[in-house]
Amino acid sequence: MSEQDAAGPADPSAESTSLSALPENGEREVETTLRPRKLAEFVGQARVREQLELVLQSAKRRGVPPDHVLLSGPPGLGKTSLSMIIASELDSAIRITSGPALERAGDLAAMLSNLVEGDVLFIDEIHRIARPAEEMLYLAMEDFRVDVVVGKGPGATSIPLEIAPFTLVGATTRSGALTGPLRDRFGFTGHMEFYEPVELEQVLRRSAVILGVSLEADGAEEIAGRSRGTPRIANRLLRRVRDYAEVRADGRVTRETARAALEVYDVDEWGLDRLDRAVLSALVRSFGGGPVGVSTLAVAVGEESSTVEEVCEPYLVRIGMLARTPRGRVATPAAWQHLGLPPPKGGTPEATQSLFD
């Protein structure tokens, strides 16, 4: 499910009736129905939503495609959903691709040449686009033209190819990895923030109606508190709790049912899963709280260094259970407390040492 998975159609009660009649033949179709279709249905991100609404309404009044849009932020917050909403609000078609898929300039040229005026081109993980394709994108974004090189060597010729005016929507989880020239060509940049628990409860209530799940208020509160501020995770947990409620309970998702279900799926009250706890446990029990290098920590839990660094560490740092220092990773007193262990006397001074200590 992508990015926000937050809200459904304007009349979710009608949608839930049709979905309940569908066979449970995989969740991709259901995930698609959880996407909001209009800005008014999009939960959270109030500032970005307001800014984007101004950009779209102004362009519609002037009868021109809106400026190119860049959406940045951590995974699961609604970047893909917003790109589809932009196309929906403009009554335009959307073409979807990703940065890693555009390895050659020819790949991008073929896609651009097939665009119709007013189309929306969505490039996910745009920071990973190949350099030749990126350089071609510069001209396409500014002048709606691409230069196709025919032949090689001294006999090569450049043929200009006009393309229809379009709106590029780029999504990135690493805005710092974008080159300056590419970033500067976007007329609007929206940064997605993590959601508050109250906002996640709204997401869960909408999704529960669409999925036909009987979700109690305390059940939504329990799931939202374990969702790491991310709608994608909240909806995933809701579906797993629904499974548990249908098989081992009366079908209603209450606080007690949610707690029992998430215990089965190894999601604790902080939203930590098995791997998160394994990292903390190895850091505390095997290395005395650190400091320890990420590669050594990854070996200790049997995972790749990139997995520990990109999947586990961001959330552990955000909730204050792990600190990155020049000497390595260090467990904070909160990590010891979460594992039910007494922190070392005097704390962990390494966590506060500077580079020159």
Rank of each mutant, 00 (worst) to 15 (best):
Y315Q: 09
E221A: 15
S13I: 07
A14Y: 03
R259T: 10
Q353A: 11
P231V: 07
S16F: 02
S18F: 11
V241K: 01
L237E: 04
G176I: 00
D143L: 01
I85T: 06
G293Q: 11
R285M: 03
V150H: 05
N25I: 10
G347S: 06
D11R: 14
S354Y: 01
E309P: 00
L70H: 05
G118W: 09
E269I: 02
L70M: 06
A7S: 13
K152R: 14
E256G: 09
E256T: 10
A245E: 04
K60G: 03
A351G: 03
E135F: 04
E15Q: 15
V169L: 08
E263C: 00
G290I: 11
T296Q: 12
L355S: 10
G289F: 11
R324N: 06
G63T: 08
G176N: 14
L182M: 12
A335R: 02
S92P: 03
T33F: 13
R324E: 08
E309L: 13
R239F: 06
G8I: 14
G8N: 12
R232Q: 09
P291W: 03
G26K: 04
A133C: 12
Y244I: 01
Q353K: 13
M192P: 06
R183Q: 07
A278R: 04
V247G: 01
G26L: 06
D124C: 08
V150W: 01
P343Y: 03
H68Y: 09
S214K: 15
P154A: 03
V203I: 13
Y138S: 09
F166L: 08
Q202N: 09
R232F: 00
Q353M: 14
L204Y: 04
D67M: 09
A177N: 13
G118C: 11
G302E: 08
R174M: 05
L54K: 11
T97W: 05
T254C: 10
G44V: 08
D147W: 01
G290F: 11
L90V: 03
G176V: 08
R277W: 06
L121W: 10
W336G: 02
G99Y: 06
K38D: 13
S306T: 15
V241I: 12
R37I: 02
L280D: 11
G78N: 02
G78E: 04
F42W: 10
G187Y: 05
R174S: 06
G76Q: 03
R324S: 04
S72E: 10
T17I: 14
L215C: 07
E350L: 03
Q57Y: 02
G106M: 08
A300E: 15
T173D: 13
K60P: 08
T17P: 00
Y315E: 15
Y138K: 02
D357Q: 09
V169G: 05
V301R: 04
A105F: 00
L90Y: 05
G73K: 04
R324Y: 02
G63D: 07
N114H: 13
S227T: 11
Q353P: 00
P9M: 10
K79M: 07
V209P: 04
E216G: 08
D276C: 12
L82N: 02
V69L: 15
A133Q: 12
E199H: 07
D250C: 06
A14M: 09
T230H: 01
A260T: 04
V213T: 14
L90C: 08
Q4W: 09
G170A: 08
W336K: 02
S286V: 02
T80K: 00
